[in-house]
Amino acid sequence: EVLRRGVALGMTFLDTGEDYEDGYAEELLGKAIKGMREKVFISSKFQPAHNAFPGVMAAIEGSLKRLGTDYIDLYQVQWPNAAVPVTETMSALSALVKAGKVRFAGVSNFTPDQLREAQAAFQPGELVSVQTEYNLLDRSIESDLLPYCRENRVTVIAYNLLSQGHLYFGEKERDILEKVAEKHGGTVTQVIIAWVISRPPVIALTNTMDLRHLEQNAAAADLRLSQADINLIDATFNRQPVLVLPERIRVAGYDADVSHTIYTTLEEAIANAAGIQPSPTALAEEIKNGQMLRPVELVRTRDTSGRYDYDLIHGRVRYWAWVIAHGRQAPIPAFVAGERQYAKSERQ
């Protein structure tokens, strides 16, 4: 019902992935779009474990079957895989475009250097997008990835706009957003979405199973922020990453997204029993080779033992990858969010 209502409201870009709910998300989407396939634009992804040529070919067949379609509009590699050359993965995507099983190819969570390497394997216009995190707290793509995409006509698909629903604002920041929202007769969430899509070539992914929130998200596309609004928000949310010793960061048993697997010890991260891809160990190798990952997200801790200064709220795998690569004495880049707002599950 929610998916069909979204399409009726003009939200026709539908994003999923082979590993979302172990494939069930693709099955559900396939059922929801029956009878209106030509009205929607389906975007799906394959896991980094499938980045080798045979893996991509097998993954596409599984996704097509679950989605109940014979083509995918946008097919993306979900993460780079250090064990598989980018050129091999792109060769597979290019072959799928030529075979008509995929209309366009894209990448997700690639750095600018990785994106350049990926583009070199394609004909002009075949690799059309990069999906990446982008929100008011983490604006790091504005210094490199966003300008590159603007110059090279690559669409930026922004996800995690609300930091899994837990953006942490200071009092001044929230006041500014509320004033802009009141000015436009909207909500703070709508203002955030409008701010994200005000920066070409960015489009935004939203996620909800609530009809009321769905309709509010759709209406955000019609909220036109003035340049003065944008400048005010830019100036208010201009946090720069800081360097923090990992040993001063508390890694507790919760995260901004409670659906994500959580490793709370180095031993758990190295063992990677949940099979997270790319694994903390694989990311550590990329860090050792000079590949810089985006900063983790922190808030001031409420721990009273004196051992910690911050709590980790986002970027768990990145944190452990850094510790594996450099130990706990090498400062890790981090964004420090505003005052902590604890989720209901944490207060109980």
Rank of each mutant, 00 (worst) to 15 (best):
R5W: 06
G10S: 09
T12F: 04
T12Q: 13
L14Y: 04
A25C: 14
K31G: 13
A32T: 08
I33V: 13
M36G: 00
R37N: 05
V40H: 10
I42C: 00
I42M: 00
A49Y: 02
P54F: 12
A59E: 03
E61G: 08
S63G: 01
G68L: 02
D70G: 12
Y71G: 00
L74W: 01
N81R: 14
A82Y: 05
A83Y: 07
V97C: 13
A99D: 15
G100Y: 10
K101G: 10
V102T: 08
G106W: 08
N109A: 09
P112C: 04
P112T: 12
D113R: 15
Q114C: 01
Q114R: 13
L115F: 11
L115T: 01
L115H: 07
L115S: 08
R116G: 04
E117G: 14
A121I: 09
F122V: 12
S129Q: 07
V130D: 06
E133H: 15
Y134N: 03
L137T: 15
S143I: 03
S143Q: 12
L145Q: 01
E151N: 04
N152I: 04
T155F: 02
G165W: 00
H166G: 01
L167Y: 12
Y168V: 03
R174K: 13
R174E: 05
I176P: 11
L177T: 06
A181T: 09
E182W: 00
G185H: 00
G185V: 10
T187R: 11
V188F: 12
T189Y: 11
V191A: 11
V191C: 06
A194E: 03
W195C: 06
W195Y: 14
V196M: 08
P200A: 15
P201F: 08
P201E: 09
A204Q: 06
H213S: 10
L214Q: 04
A220N: 06
A220G: 03
R224I: 04
S226K: 14
N238T: 09
R239F: 05
P241H: 10
L245W: 00
V251I: 14
A252Q: 06
Y254T: 09
D255P: 01
D257Q: 05
I262C: 13
Y263P: 06
E267S: 05
A273V: 06
G275K: 03
I276G: 02
T281D: 06
A284N: 02
E286R: 14
N289K: 05
G290E: 07
R294E: 06
P295T: 04
V296E: 06
L298I: 01
L298N: 02
V299T: 11
R300H: 09
T301Y: 00
R302T: 07
D303M: 08
D303H: 10
D309K: 09
Y310N: 05
H314E: 00
V317A: 02
V317H: 03
Y319C: 04
Y319S: 01
Y319N: 01
A321M: 05
W322K: 04
H326W: 08
P331Q: 12
A337M: 12
G338Q: 14
G338E: 08
E339T: 15
R340P: 10
Q348F: 12
